[in-house]
């Protein structure tokens, strides 16, 4: 893994001269981003996985444009979901193993806000690249321009939800050596609504319906996850930390 970047200055300050919450959040975010950029493998693996899963469908099912045009949105959504899930295990694991997470939990700032910036960093390095890659893959699956645009929009709203919900599962399994399989078992049922609304929106757009209502629903899910998931993840992290 190479040497881990030490925490930037503010987090290790004593309590009384502690920096503001915002400052700490930015510090955590910057540190996580810098770490991901230095470990290019972590950055690339989900993307490669995404492309390969999507490439398997024409090979495995049918290369006909009629099939792919209809199923393309679902394929891309499932691929993005799986790729996000694959990267979840790394969200807290390294920090847990080298003790950084314990330090973060000891900070005077509320843990759930710091967890929120870790999740944001995770989304920036996995979810966002997936969204950026989607138009290219969408064209390869014969999706029309309008569908691709709506698909990107749903993924833009949906992948942060995936990261947020997944953080709870990752926090619950971080103390386990073989947490990967269990993590997918915990997270998949919670992902189903996001998947349904994501693909449903694209299909509605494909049939010419107005999708602003669908997008509003997805945004509502994002807001709900944004409020609740960091709290649950922080509680789960505290449990995992107290066990080790």
């Amino acid at each position: 893994m190479g040497s881990r970047q030490p925490l930037a200055v503010p987090l290790l300050d004593p309590v009384n001269s502690s920096p503001g919450v915002w400052h700490a959040m930015v510090a955590v975010l910057r540190r996580d981003l810098r770490l991901s950029v230095r470990q290019k493998q972590d950055l690339l693996n989900p993307l490669l996985f995404f492309v390969m899963v999507v490439a398997l469908f024409p090979l495995g099912v049918s290369p006909e444009s009629s099939f792919l045009g209809e199923a393309g949105a679902g394929i891309l959504w499932v691929g993005a979901l799986l790729a996000t899930m694959l990267s979840l295990d790394h969200l807290f694991r390294f920090d847990f193993e080298d003790g950084t997470l314990e330090q973060i939990a000891l900070q005077p700032q509320p843990l759930f806000l710091l967890v929120l910036s870790k999740i944001l960093a995770h989304w920036l390095v996995t979810g966002l690249p997936l969204v950026i890659l989607t138009p290219l893959l969408g064209l390869m699956l014969y999706l029309d321009g309008n569908s691709v645009a709506v698909l990107c929009l749903t993924l833009l709203i949906g992948t942060p939800v995936l990261s947020l919900i997944g953080s709870v599962g990752a926090a619950l399994t971080v103390g386990l050596r073989a947490g990967g399989v269990l993590l997918s078992l915990l997270v998949i049922p919670l992902y189903i609504p996001v998947l349904i609304f994501g693909t449903g929106t694209v299909m509605a757009a494909g049939s010419g319906a107005d999708v602003s209502g669908h997008l509003a629903l997805m945004a509502a899910m994002l807001v709900l996850a944004l409020v609740l998931a960091p709290l649950a993840a922080a509680a789960a992290l505290k449990i995992s930390l107290s066990a080790s």
Binding site: L186, L190, A236, I239, S240
Partner: peptide, 8 residues
């Protein structure tokens, strides 16, 4: 842990 998961 199970309690957190059940509530979520």
């Amino acid at each position: 842990s199970v309690a957190v998961l059940a509530i979520v």
